[in-house]
Computed example of a mutant assay.
Amino acid sequence: MATTTTHRHSETAEATAGGLTVFAAVLLFIAGVLDLFRGIMAIANDDVFVNTPNYVFKFDLTSWGWIQLVLGVIAMSVSAGLFTRATWARVVGVGIAGLAIIANFLSIPYYPVWSLTLIAMYAFVIWGLCIVRRDR
């Protein structure tokens, strides 16, 4: 009886781990696509963004566009690894989501709603990847 309960608990834990990893992978992919689009917008046309002359972390919008574009491509690539449940993808996913949160925080004055939305999405990615503990 005890092994049946343990076996069921193990199956439930594995299903939960798989579900949260897939959730994080999908969210990471979507956030990566949004970062990719924002990068393209910043590179192609700086007029879309708000002009903030007195911002402490002022950068050239074309440079920010390239940063967002690269982070988006890496995020989309890592999400493909998460669909295979690769351990390296979980570690890199947390790292890239953390970097993307910092990049989006620094670009809040240029596009505030989009930045805050992406910060929330990347925070959920980190949560989804860190909450699951694999049983040995």
Rank of each mutant, 00 (worst) to 15 (best):
M1C: 04
M1Q: 01
A2K: 10
A2D: 09
H7N: 13
R8G: 00
R8F: 14
E11A: 12
T12A: 12
A13P: 00
E14M: 08
A15E: 11
A15T: 05
T16L: 10
A17D: 03
G18W: 07
L20A: 04
L20I: 01
T21I: 06
T21C: 06
A24Y: 06
A25H: 00
A25D: 02
V26D: 06
L27S: 07
L28R: 11
F29N: 02
I30H: 05
A31V: 05
V33Y: 08
V33W: 06
V33K: 03
L36M: 12
R38A: 10
R38Y: 11
A44K: 04
N45Q: 13
N45T: 08
D46R: 14
D47W: 08
D47Q: 15
F49Q: 07
F49N: 02
F49S: 04
V50T: 15
P53D: 09
P53R: 09
N54Q: 15
F57E: 15
F59H: 12
D60Y: 07
L61Y: 09
S63I: 06
W64L: 13
I67D: 09
I67H: 10
L69V: 03
V70L: 07
L71D: 10
V73S: 04
A75F: 02
V78L: 10
A80E: 01
L82N: 06
L82F: 07
L82M: 06
L82W: 04
A86G: 14
T87G: 05
T87M: 13
W88Q: 06
W88P: 04
W88C: 05
A89H: 01
R90M: 10
V92H: 02
G93S: 09
A100V: 00
A100D: 07
I102M: 06
A103K: 02
N104G: 01
N104M: 02
N104F: 01
S107Q: 14
I108L: 00
P112H: 07
L116N: 08
T117C: 05
L118V: 04
I119H: 01
M121D: 03
F124M: 13
L129E: 10
V132R: 03
R133A: 05
R133M: 02
R133Y: 12
R134L: 05
R134P: 00
R134S: 11
D135Q: 14
R136T: 13
